[in-house]
Design a protein around this nucleic acid. Sequence first.
DNA 1: AACAATTACGTCTCGCGTAAGCATG
DNA 2: CATGCTTACGCGAGACGTAATTGTT
Lengths: 171, 171
Amino acid sequence: MTYEQLLVLHAIVSEGTFRGAAERLHKSQSAVSHMLKKLEDDIGFLLLSREAYRPKLTAKGEVFYRQATRALEQMQQLRTTARNLNAKHEASVSLAVTATYPLTPVLNVISQVKNNIRQQTSIFPGNHGRPTGAVTGTTGGYHHRDDGRGAGRSGRSHSVCQHHHYAGRAS
Amino acid sequence: MTYEQLLVLHAIVSEGTFRGAAERLHKSQSAVSHMLKKLEDDIGFLLLSREAYRPKLTAKGEVFYRQATRALEQMQQLRTTARNLNAKHEASVSLAVTATYPLTPVLNVISQVKNNIRQQTSIFPGNHGRPTGAVTGTTGGYHHRDDGRGAGRSGRSHSVCQHHHYAGRAS
DNA sequence: AACAATTACGTCTCGCGTAAGCATG
DNA sequence: CATGCTTACGCGAGACGTAATTGTT
């Protein structure tokens, strides 16, 4: 049972179809199908009944999904925490610099910024690899062909799976 | 950031050493090293300071780890839920059987059981919301139907993973 | 010397894409 | 017939083991 599998489940449930989930996750529908199947295989029962042409949560699936949502939220929050911890460093640096100036007005600004950050905590559809071009928001109205290669802040880039489109086939 | 990476982190922290973690996870120490490095690479800062011969959580690592623990607990609970859901079948069957007898005393028992379950779930702190899926609130709850490949939980055992030992080497 | 962690290198698993096969509305 | 899920097949990235290297007690 992996985190990615839960992400897939969530995508399917909230999108309503495998295809939509695939779109949202920037994967192919077969990948989604595989993932979910593996998850079901792992836990030992079906999560969605495919009999109805539109996938629908089974009774057990319903319960499982509720719990899964909680786990996903924790993960999401963990990611946010990580990002905050990264920003902490520079924040404290600029604070040190500012300390030589009269502080009183600055403190006000700071608290405002803090509030901003607090609200900025984005919702759910954090993408897995890195900050992709995917829009924030659960509205599910967007189709997105290309997932903007935004070269990250550092030179990391650790070879994420770029968009599908296998170059060559052989058959 | 994957679930497995968090597992590795947790293993290292609670075992105190990479080697111990490797042992616990039935992996090699290099695998553990790789996993953690990838995690650190992913989140952008070091979790453990390796300078001290015995790995020690960094300041940020401390914070991250606390949050990670929460996520891991959710995952663990999710797994438990899944297992319960598999066993759930027989439970509702016996309820159906009992339904032919006078119900009044039985209902009392049920609510007691429900309470038991509720307490049982509170092993992990901060369990709010629904009970772990067993026993829905009212008697009219739900009648499970098919939804399951009846082939139960016997044949799963996905993670046997005793010490692997690659068969062949070549060098 | 014994132990612990990093790392270079090689192998293999598995994630996922393409395409074809079914099923449903 | 259009739409959506599944399945067969294959490729490549990533996971991981072995072993050599370096640092610690």
